[in-house]
């Protein structure tokens, strides 16, 4: 069953098109990585999912319910962490967490105390004294101690240190083990790569690529590093070989996935001493899309966050 399903979602701010025809589907129990540069429309999409912004066109369903008209019903089953966590300066972190819990309809107090320990959050401090990372912890503790079915997280780790990021990743895995669904917007690609089952890449208000990491990798190149006894010749003339570096006996290059077979056959003639192959990282994928290779410029731009 689809937990989130948007069909042809379009959002205009006056004459400016922030999202055009976004189709996004998140299945139950899945962790969906939503990636894209600043201003691509990630936050706008998420705010529409939350019923804070109203879609100009298209349908947005969460748990099969309309995200706008049935927002309250939907919100009882989700937990949300915004990208910029702005809190009330004169309330303490602990007060905010409890308030969020009761506005949502109850939280698990034992879970809350445990999470505050794991995230090393001092709940007795006023929000005014919290750093960005600490404000994010407040929102994360409130979200993960809620017994939600869907977690919508908008760049939740941008202010966390590496140790806390580790804790965050553990929390996501626990949530996944419990069969919950997660929409994780991020531009920390290593994080998305580690956690997500499927990825959607958004650029200038359009989803330009979506699928599992494996599916996406298929569309792209594998990194190869080889050392041979005899110098390799004619490498450049082979189809599907890119970014060659090195000389004669040692070389590193990228190969289009569909040409891998013929390239490996070719280099084996020179007596392979060492062969390393690495799948493309998400970063490679991302850069490939964002350098604009093969993607026509569309008539929309990002919004400022």
């Amino acid at each position: 069953m689809a937990v989130i399903e948007t069909m042809n979602l379009t959002k205009k701010f006056g004459g400016f098109t922030a999202l055009s025809g976004v189709n996004l589907k998140l299945n139950e129990g899945e962790i969906y990585g939503f990636i894209g540069p600043n201003g691509a429309g990630k936050s706008t999409t998420i705010r529409i999912l939350l019923g804070i912004l109203k879609a100009t066109e298209g349908s947005v369903k969460i748990f099969g319910k309309d995200a706008w008209t049935e927002a309250v019903e939907v919100h009882k089953r989700i937990a949300y962490v915004p990208g910029d966590v702005n809190l009330w300066p004169n309330l303490t972190g602990g007060e905010v967490i409890d308030l969020f819990g009761s506005l949502r309809g109850g939280i698990d107090n034992r879970k809350r105390d445990e999470l505050m320990k794991r995230f090393e959050l001092d709940p007795s401090k006023k929000c005014r004294t919290y750093s960005k990372g600490n404000r994010q912890k407040v929102a994360l503790v409130a979200a993960f101690s809620a017994n939600a079915e869907l977690y919508i997280l908008d760049e939740p780790t941008s202010g966390l240190d590496p140790l806390m990021e580790q804790v965050f990743q553990e929390c996501i895995r626990e949530v996944k083990d419990a069969g919950k669904s997660v929409l994780l917007s991020s531009h920390i690609l290593s994080e998305v790569e580690k956690l997500c089952d499927r990825v959607g890449i958004i650029r200038q208000g359009k989803i330009i690529e979506t699928g599992t990491l494996n599916e996406l990798r298929h569309l792209t190149r594998t990194n190869l590093v080889v050392e041979t006894k005899k110098p390799i010749t004619n490498l450049l003339s082979l189809p599907g070989v890119h970014e060659i570096e090195g000389n004669g006996h040692a070389a590193s290059f990228q190969v289009d996935s569909e040409q891998l077979d013929s390239v490996v056959k070719h280099i084996s003639q020179f007596g392979v001493v060492k062969l390393e192959s690495a799948p493309p990282t998400l970063e490679d994928l991302f850069m490939q899309h964002y350098e604009g290779a093969g993607i026509p410029e569309v008539e929309v731009g990002g919004i400022s966050e």
């Binding site: 804070i52 309250v72 919100h75 949300y80 915004p82 506005l103």
Partner: peptide, 8 residues
Amino acid sequence: EHVLGRAV
């Protein structure tokens, strides 16, 4: 949005 993002 903290308030409206919850069941209010």
